[in-house]
Design a protein around this nucleic acid. Structure first.
Lengths: 183, 183
DNA sequence: GTCTATAGCATGATAGAC
DNA sequence: GTCTATCATGCTATAGAC
């Protein structure tokens, strides 16, 4: 039996994501990640060409995880499925805010999700939105995504300081966007 | 007549914003800003307590500028005024992407706009959205802002790689959100 | 208000031994 | 694959002279 690798890909991506959520994306440094997986910084360069490649590992992983959760949630009528997918996104963003920002607005193109990781997510979204806006599903998908991502980002950044019920605002916004999309 | 200050507040904030737009928020360092205004780094600590305070100067300035432009654009019927304000936001975000992210999701609460700078912007928005959603203007304002900010962020981060007409997607999304908000 | 000088630290990345 | 050692660079922030 082969000697077990000290740094498996799973452990590596888990370490990156954990550091990112706990200390922020800037804290994902070669040495911090190395320490988390129990090696020295130079050894990491055998696994990832540089810091951004490390972030991309996390971005791809998070993209897959988010897609899984949206898929699992999206059942029922087209409208209901879309609403459930949006709520799944919000739940994911609440649980993994840094990973979410990595998926939607990474610090540089090489740190964001690869095209291969994004493709299935886009396909799922277009599929889900098609019944509501068969004439222009791409615009509709962008509208829904932009709203949901913007809402979650602002929520996490404390942009909603006016008080009020943020959960209710999410549900009202979701209803409004879905209402507006129907053509 | 008093000797003119080498570092006026105007020059300082202009330097911060220029560096931020040109090289990114991370490039706004004490020494970079100092060099831009023609002094040494330690001298800056007389003007701002630390790096985040420097960013807040830019955030407050950008907030005022954005509000001015939205105000100037928001004429006509309530619906038309809101659409124009949203387009003004998109234009501002295209011109000053880093400042925009500073306004809506700064890297830390002390780097974002001060409450004093935010208040008039919130008031304007609530006022503008009130005719459409008199029963819950706060949720409506959040929905519109979240969508517009999310759209602009994703646009700038190259999240719309599927091609298609992004301008048209913006207009369609805007129409959909405004349609959905009317109660 | 500005300067020089410096402390103190973290970073990304590489060379070469094992 | 991993290590030690190291380079070169950058940063925030402070002390104290002028």
């Amino acid at each position: 039996m082969p000697a077990p690798q000290r740094v498996t890909p799973e452990r590596l991506v888990a370490a990156v994501r954990e550091i990112a959520e706990r200390d922020g994306l800037d804290a994902v440094t070669m040495s911090a990640v190395a320490a988390a997986v129990g090696v020295r910084a130079p050894s990491l360069y055998k696994r990832a060409a540089n810091r951004h490649a490390l972030l991309r590992l996390a971005a791809d992983d998070a993209t897959r995880e988010l897609l899984d959760e949206m898929r699992a949630a999206a059942v029922g009528s087209p409208r209901h499925a879309l609403a459930a997918a949006a709520r799944a996104l919000r739940a994911f963003a609440a649980r993994c805010p840094r990973a979410t920002s990595l998926v939607f607005s990474a610090p540089g193109p090489d740190a964001g999700p690869s095209a291969a990781a994004m493709a299935p997510a886009m396909a799922f979204l277009l599929d889900a939105v098609h019944p509501l806006s068969p004439d222009d599903p791409l615009s509709a998908a962008r509208t829904l995504t932009a709203w949901a991502y913007g809402f979650c980002t602002m929520e996490q950044n404390g942009a909603f300081r006016q008080g009020g019920d943020v959960d209710a605002a999410f549900e009202r916004g979701l209803a409004a966007v879905l209402r507006g999309l129907r053509t």
